[in-house]
């Protein structure tokens, strides 16, 4: 793979994102809204209690700050609409007529948007940590940080592959709105964006460890908080295998389905 080519694709995508200042500043405020709402809710629920499912109010707030940040890192969910529309409207030709791999293009664009979000949202996270005087956001050891970063990275690649697969389904089904929305809601719940998965019954939690969504936000956030350390290595292997599977499935679907292009607008 020619990296400068894909770096240039990512860079131009990032410059295009920066064309609108209002959108840039709105993006920076997103983590604040989610964390403030969660804080107000959990403060009420913690009234008179020290811990809930092993979380103190401080770790719970730190959990929401971390998952708000991690959730923003996956930018491919929004890109599905753009690529599916390109396929439906016959504009996908712009990727096929140039010497680029369309999935490489998708990944490069996603990576650039993620870097952009890190730039915008990291400042918000630091500010939130300062506002809440939350010391739990500083993990105790380096191995926790490295495991969390590696698992979160593989989780992002997994989500990119899953969303690529969703986008290319537009060749088959044309409109993938319903499927994509249902998938999005399920992923948000299973990834622990709404609630820490530790609140679920043990049996359900055990089952979830076999699926990839557990490793997208919940486990990396837990590791950063010094929790679930014993799951770090097995988690890395599990999400790694799921990511390889999703990459292969996405590539297979793309090769099969692009041949069904009926050339909209021809």
């Amino acid at each position: 793979m020619n990296l400068p080519k894909y770096a240039a694709i990512g860079a131009i995508g990032m410059r295009a994102r920066m064309a609108y200042r209002f959108d840039v500043w709105l993006g920076a405020t997103m983590p604040f809204i989610r964390v403030l709402l969660a804080y107000m809710l959990w403060k009420a629920l913690f009234a008179g209690k020290e811990t809930i499912a092993g979380f103190t109010l401080e770790t719970m707030t730190a959990y929401y700050i971390l998952t708000a940040f991690l959730a923003r890192l996956d930018q491919t969910n929004g890109m599905v609409w753009e690529y599916a529309e390109d396929i439906r409207e016959g504009r996908f030709a712009k990727y096929l007529a140039k010497p680029v791999n369309p999935f490489g293009h998708f990944l490069a664009t996603a990576a650039a948007r993620t870097l952009y979000v890190i730039g915008i949202a990291l400042g918000s996270v630091i500010l939130l940590a300062f506002l809440f005087r939350n010391s739990r956001l500083l993990p105790a050891n380096l191995s926790d940080i490295l495991y969390a970063a590696a698992i979160a990275f593989l989780g992002l690649v997994f989500m990119a592959s899953l969303n690529w697969l969703t986008a290319v389904l537009a060749w088959k089904f044309k409109d993938i709105t319903g499927f994509h929305m249902i998938k999005g809601n399920i992923v948000e719940f299973l990834a622990g964006t709404f609630l820490p998965l530790a609140l679920l019954p043990d049996g359900v939690l055990h089952l979830m460890r076999w699926f990839p969504f557990y490793y997208i936000q919940y486990l990396p956030a837990s590791l950063m908080l010094g929790m679930n350390r014993e799951e770090a290595f097995s988690g890395l292997i599990t999400i790694g295998l799921w990511t390889i599977g999703a990459l292969l499935l996405g590539e297979w679907a793309w090769r099969i389905l692009r041949r069904q292009d009926e050339g909209a607008g021809a």
Binding site: I12, R15, K98, P99
Partner: peptide
């Protein structure tokens, strides 16, 4: 973006 950005992208592609 200005067209020059697309030209530079094509240069890499």
């Amino acid at each position: 973006l200005p067209a020059l950005d697309t030209f530079r992208l094509n240069k890499e592609i």
